[in-house]
Each structure stands twice: as structure tokens, then as C-alpha cells.
Amino acid sequence: MPNQITHNGSKTTPRPHDLLWITGVEGLATDQLLPTWATAEWLAVAPVVIRRETVTDCAWLPVGLRGTTRSERFKALLSVDAIKRCVQPEFLVQTEAWNIHSQCGAFPAVKTLASMASSLTNIGLHWGPTGSVGFALATGLPVLRDESDLDIVLHAPSPISPEKMSLLQDLLDSQMCRIDLQIDTGSGGFAFAEWAAGRKTILLKTGNGPVLTADPWSESHQLDTHRLP
């Protein structure tokens, strides 16, 4: 995703799962009307999330709008000029956001996050919560349920060593909450569970669509994958 935004006085390249607060609905472009829940009042406090999609026009970013329930999701494009603030998942770990928004601490997914945070950080890879947990910890908005999963993104620009793979698997196996750990290679994302299961090919989500690959870190997926419809 080549598009850049100015954040804290410097240029940064937004990544999938980053949360963006926007100036208003006028900064969004869609091919249909916004859903009724996506009001100007809601979007004044609720960030949009970067989606994994390639957009050729550097003035726009692919984003997803989310409401208070799982069914309230909507795709759009966002003008980079409409961005007020950017929060990356790693920032929620650095600030221990689960202690800031204490009202979230009663939910099993947040309890799990707090209990495993130090161990996951000690593995030595950048990571952070995404999905409903990340959204709630970044905003304090009431989007969590007792049955909410814990979604985590872990950034690994190079292959993960067998030792770290084993540590990750042991850590996930020791948790009571369902955890969806996504590995982001910088050019795509895949489910850790698929890789750990030893499958010959795994589904890699890229900005140009999903591919099946034997090596998610390969520079050219043309050699060892076939693109899905």
C-alpha cells in the first residue's frame, strides 16, 4: 500500500488494521449510500479501519466502517486529507490500553490480552490487538461482548524461526479465549493456525486479492501460487 499520510509531523505508510479518525463523512467515497448506523455523530467518535486493498490513486485509502455490532460493517474509500489521527495496534500494547479503558477489562478477550501481553512481546516481534478488542481499547466505545474473539496482528517481515513458532503455539494453546492470530509479512497477511498446522499451501490475503502460497514471504507469488477467484 504505497499511500502515505502525515501523522505526528512525519510521513507514514498506513497498514491494514490501523485505525483512522476522520474529519467527517464528506471525506468518504462510496458507490452506495452510507448505512443508517453510520451517522455523522458516530463517525465523529468512531475511527475507520484500513482494509487490505490496493488503491492506485494515492489520494485515497481503502477503509472499513464499523458500528456496535458484527453486522454493522461497510467498505469505503477515504481521502487522505480527511484524516485527523492514526492509531496502530502496536500503540495499544505500548500504552497498555486495557488499563486505560478499565470498563473493557471484564470481557474474556481483554482479560486474555492482558494476561498474555508480556509473553507475546518477549518473543520479539511487533504486534497488537485488532478487531473488536482493538477498536474498543482505542475508543472506549461499547462494542465488546462476552463471546468476542481476540484478534491479533503480528508483524513478521521475514520468516519466523521454528523457536518463535513453538513459543507462539505454546502461548496460544495456554489461553482460554479463542484467538485469531494473523501474521503480516508486509505484503500480505495469513492465519498463524494454517501455517502452524504444516499445510503445504496457505491462504495469503494481499492487496490484489487472496492467493494460495507455499511461501508467504516470497517476493513473487507468481512462482508458487495460483490466484483465487
Score class of each variant (00 low, 15 high):
222 Q>F: 06
118 S>P: 01
62 P>D: 00
21 W>P: 08
159 P>T: 09
104 C>T: 15
162 P>E: 09
5 I>G: 03
38 A>F: 06
24 G>C: 11
152 I>W: 05
154 L>W: 04
139 T>P: 05
223 L>R: 10
175 Q>T: 14
32 Q>N: 09
156 A>G: 05
178 R>A: 13
98 W>E: 13
19 L>P: 04
73 R>Y: 05
176 M>V: 13
195 W>T: 05
43 L>H: 04
157 P>S: 06
69 T>W: 00
71 S>R: 14
224 D>W: 10
19 L>M: 14
149 D>P: 03
95 T>H: 12
38 A>V: 08
38 A>Q: 03
55 V>S: 01
71 S>V: 05
164 K>Q: 15
60 W>D: 00
44 A>T: 06
158 S>P: 01
24 G>Q: 12
179 I>G: 03
91 F>G: 03
65 L>R: 02
213 T>N: 06
220 S>C: 11
225 T>H: 08
133 V>W: 06
169 Q>T: 15
131 G>P: 03
115 S>H: 13
134 G>V: 11
75 K>F: 02
199 R>L: 15
209 G>N: 06
228 L>A: 01
124 G>V: 07
193 A>F: 06
140 G>P: 08
53 E>A: 10
102 S>W: 07
165 M>E: 14
229 P>W: 09
100 I>M: 05
68 T>G: 00
198 G>F: 13
170 D>W: 11
17 H>E: 13
159 P>I: 10
221 H>L: 14
55 V>A: 01
165 M>D: 05
210 P>D: 08
186 G>F: 08
144 L>R: 04
82 A>V: 11
53 E>Y: 02
5 I>F: 11
68 T>P: 00
112 T>N: 09
201 T>H: 13
147 E>M: 04
183 I>E: 03
141 L>P: 00
83 I>E: 01
126 H>A: 10
125 L>V: 02
77 L>T: 09
190 F>E: 03
1 M>D: 05
150 L>H: 08
148 S>N: 04
178 R>Q: 14
51 R>Q: 01
219 E>G: 07
156 A>P: 07
110 V>N: 03
23 T>G: 15
175 Q>V: 14
177 C>P: 01
81 D>T: 12
223 L>A: 10
20 L>K: 04
90 E>M: 12
117 A>R: 15
64 G>P: 02
85 R>D: 09
170 D>Y: 11
217 W>A: 02
74 F>I: 08
20 L>P: 04
45 V>Y: 00
101 H>D: 06
102 S>T: 14
56 T>A: 12
63 V>G: 00
7 H>R: 10
14 P>E: 03
148 S>G: 04
197 A>I: 13
171 L>E: 07
181 L>D: 10
186 G>H: 08
26 E>V: 12
133 V>L: 06
168 L>N: 10
229 P>C: 10
99 N>L: 15
15 R>H: 12
167 L>A: 14
2 P>H: 13
30 T>P: 03
55 V>N: 00
39 T>A: 00
214 A>K: 13
170 D>N: 15
210 P>K: 12
58 C>N: 14
32 Q>M: 12
21 W>Y: 08
130 T>R: 07
221 H>I: 12
164 K>H: 15
26 E>M: 10
225 T>P: 01
94 Q>F: 06
224 D>R: 12
37 W>A: 01
